[in-house]
Write a protein that binds this DNA or RNA. Structure first.
Lengths: 115, 115
DNA sequence: TGTCATACCTAGAACCTAGAGGTATAACAC
DNA sequence: GTGTTATACCTCTAGGTTCTAGGTATGACA
């Protein structure tokens, strides 16, 4: 069972990562924390989730990375590629459609076909 | 890969089934079609998804079933138990929280902590 | 020297869903 | 009467994603 995070999370990590990178390059550890902060702890993805997502996105050409040393620390910064940007657009639209459709059932009165 | 349905669907089948049953008893086949219709085909769960969900919900005491013959056909009608009703309340709240949190990131400006 | 926060990573288990397939009956057309 | 479609139930397997738990290494600070 999933205890730390609620369900309904399929595809959400990918969506959130892409969205965050749209604002400029970020590194993995930073993304992990940004998700926690920006969602008010509602969504809290572990590093074990975020890093594999980053690697998969890079393999797919949606993001690219460059190593940078900051304060003697080595970080891997990721930035959105054009491909990643269009993937983000796509996923965002999908997200709207699905949540909208679910919402429709949740607020429905059960008469379904009101023509 | 998921071709027929978009992602973001984790826990959604359970939520939708519970919600539909809140309006009165239904049988499996009917639920499958109701989901298709009420979501405008955006969400289209196969019987291979819905039946296992129904069985799991019944095992968990969230719904109960009774066999009924209609027009010479044998149908298994499911209805929401009090336990299922509170589960629905719970899941609905969760759904709101998660989608709200994601939405916050999607519409965020990247400054995160505006105190 | 020890601990904490930073920063990266992988591997295994757990979970859920999609899709294909299987059975059986009623209704309708031919 | 035979074939096809719609109804109505069901199971199983593969595939994908995410969670948890680990592991490594450095800088800062006590």
């Amino acid at each position: 069972m999933r205890s730390t995070n609620p369900s309904f999370m399929n595809g959400v990590p990918e969506l959130l990562v892409l969205r965050l990178l749209r604002n400029g390059e970020m590194y993995g550890y930073q993304i992990v924390q940004a998700i926690r902060e920006e969602t008010g702890e509602v969504v809290s993805l572990g590093e074990g989730v975020v890093y594999p997502v980053l690697h998969a996105l890079e393999r797919g050409g949606a993001i690219s990375s460059r190593r940078r040393a900051v304060n003697g620390r080595s970080r891997i910064y990721y930035s959105l590629s054009p491909k990643g940007a269009s993937r983000l657009t796509e996923l965002t639209a999908l997200w709207s459609r699905v949540t909208g459709a679910v919402q429709q059932v949740l607020t429905g009165d059960g008469h379904a076909g009101l023509v």
